[in-house]
Design a protein around this nucleic acid. Structure first.
Lengths: 212, 212, 212, 212
DNA sequence: TTCTAAACGAGACGGTACGTCGAGTCTTTAG
DNA sequence: CTAAAGACTCGACGTACCGTCTCGTTTAGAA
């Protein structure tokens, strides 16, 4: 599964790989996306263009791989969300953190680049879902499942849908710059989600709570 | 209201304008977005490149203008949503229609191009919100307000937020191809929105409905 | 002979004609020839492009006409060369004057432009010969004929050839910048021509000089 | 002597260089000079435009280099003129050959293009003198010097001037199309030059002929 | 003096070529 | 035997002019 190159050119290989990723990330974070060219990446990484094309088929792929690696570095362990038992508080915390991430210009540019590449390339989109979106979604769903089991969410709730109702409005506002991204906005989305998917009073009492 | 070009080779001007828009739309709808070049547009429109650059500063602008014009043609009158009095049914209808639009490959490519251009150009994004998104949002909010007045939505509901909860998940699924866009999905979003923003049972009974 | 325009918008016509010529000459004299464009001429002359194209078929023609007009202005009367009776002195004077003309940067650029246009356009070349070169050559030949009759040139000398031997080396040096254009050089050409075409000693004694 | 490019993709480089030169020469020889565009050269050579611009700064330079290369190919050895001992005959031969060259339409266009480029670009003119004109002039002067030593030319004659008197009239007639280029014309130039620069009878008897 | 028709200035138009840039490929040389 | 270096083909970029084509606007002469 690992790279496991027979001889030991591994060192060099890995060094240039990291240099390419770093250069890519810096360029994306720094400036306008049209300045992110393969030539600029190669130059900044101190690498030949062919060393890039040997490994990735297109600029999109490099950018994508660089951002993917970014999140993989951070995630030695799978991402986990806080679980204090207070679903509303935990969700609010996470949503507010997301809002703040989007406010960082570097992060903004990084994600905007990623989104742009993904939007027009179905293969990349699939890889994105597999390697980035899904693990994150699973971590989030885990927290929701815990809440569901604790009767804080409707037993029938589709947890994927809950996540969409929470995050998609945030994402869309950010992408289209169609409104302010504030803590209050984050909370209002948490409120809406909890109203939509919270326990339905009197109708479906949480399992195992029969003896009120 | 009309073009009313004071002086002008108005005929020619308008003809080439339409040709440019048509060519742009065709190219975007037909094929991969990287084939949509200013040269291709000019060639297909039977127009000099300069005629394009004289009017728009960038490819983004032309594409945007072409799609904008598309919607302006359709909208002699402001868009209006069905209002049968049955909010759930009306929303379901509209959401299902949206789902179907996204299923059309031409429309898909059109909107994907628009989204991509907008994502990386704040000025274009502003124009998009002003000229395309807002009128549509207002029409939708009008329908929701009618429902609110009829007590089918909570009186305190932020109608913009309701729209986001309805549409953003749909949009995100489509953009990221992260799940099927089906009628059932549309309905589940309507359900969620109505649970989140429907009248709060027993708390705020709809005005004037005391005598059931 | 004259333009014989049916009606007579002559004043305006003539004004713009002069403006075009002046603008053309200024542009040619000022700067690099590639900056001499029809658009630049029209702009500087305060004239529409069509006013130029209505009268001349190409940039070459305008430039040519402008320079032609320049020499026609000067030449109310046909050009005449000094005839003091001393052929060597007269030729030296004229050749030295030519050398000095070529030293003037404006004149240099003017003639260089003219030469360039003429070299690649046989029709223009014909017009040049007819309207500019021939009258000048005839004036010069007249002076030579006078000398011939005075026995200062061989009676059989081809006067056209004499002029070529005098002027062509000068012209070529100037065109190719292949050597200094000096008064001494002018004189050495006069010497050579006189040696080549002067009276052949003892063979054909000048008429009427029998009694030395 | 060789290009000696430190590193080098020499094979490819040389192949494309030759292709560019061939294409340029063909285009110049074939047709009107305004059809000789960098794009046309690149297309015909099967080469990217950038490969041309990487090596030469302007169309002029390419054309010049192509024609220069043409003459360098021919001249493995330095050019030499016939020396039969009979100066008049040798000059007549060479001048007549020149006249015939100018009669060839391809050669005519080639030289006309070269002349045009050179006339308006002092740097190119310098290179032309250095690399094309001078070697040729030196070969011709060598022949004249031989004649001078044999007493067939005046000992004081400026050989450069002799060449100018011989060739400049020919060149000018050709450039301006101001008269027929014939064998007779060539001979009349030889006659004139020999009269102008031949031994001055009785004044300076040729060296080494003391014992007349 | 008013009317009429040409020529006019202005400048947009369909084009061609410019010279530059970047994508992705290919080749050479150094390590 | 891989990687840096960088030249290569290709094709789009955005600009400059070409020569053509309307547009109103003078303007001079005829009515």
């Amino acid at each position: 599964m690992a790279d496991e190159k027979g001889p030991g050119h591994s060192r060099r290989r890995e060094r240039s790989r990291q240099a390419i990723f770093a250069a890519t990330r810096d360029l994306v974070a720094e400036g306008p996306y049209e300045k992110v060219t393969v030539e600029a990446i190669a130059a900044r990484a101190g690498v030949g263009k062919q060393t890039i094309y040997r490994r990735w088929p297109s600029k999109s792929s490099v950018v994508f791989a660089a951002l993917l690696a970014l999140s993989e570095e951070a995630d030695g362990q799978p991402p986990a969300l806080p679980d204090t038992g207070d679903l509303r508080a935990d969700l609010s915390l996470v949503m507010r953190a997301t809002v703040e991430e989007f406010a960082d210009p570097s992060f903004d540019r990084l994600i905007r680049a990623l989104t742009t590449e993904i939007a027009n390339d179905a293969a990349l989109a699939a890889e994105y879902r597999e390697k980035l979106a899904r693990p994150l979604a699973e971590a989030k769903e885990a927290r929701l499942r815990s809440a569901q089991e604790a009767g804080q969410l409707d037993a029938d709730a589709d947890l994927g849908l809950v996540l969409e109702v929470l995050y998609a409005p945030l994402f869309q506002r950010w992408l289209h710059r169609s409104g302010p991204l504030s803590a209050a906005y984050a909370d209002s989305l948490v409120d809406a989600a909890l109203r939509a998917f919270g326990p339905r009073a009197g109708v479906k009492p949480p399992a195992g709570r029969t003896a009120g």
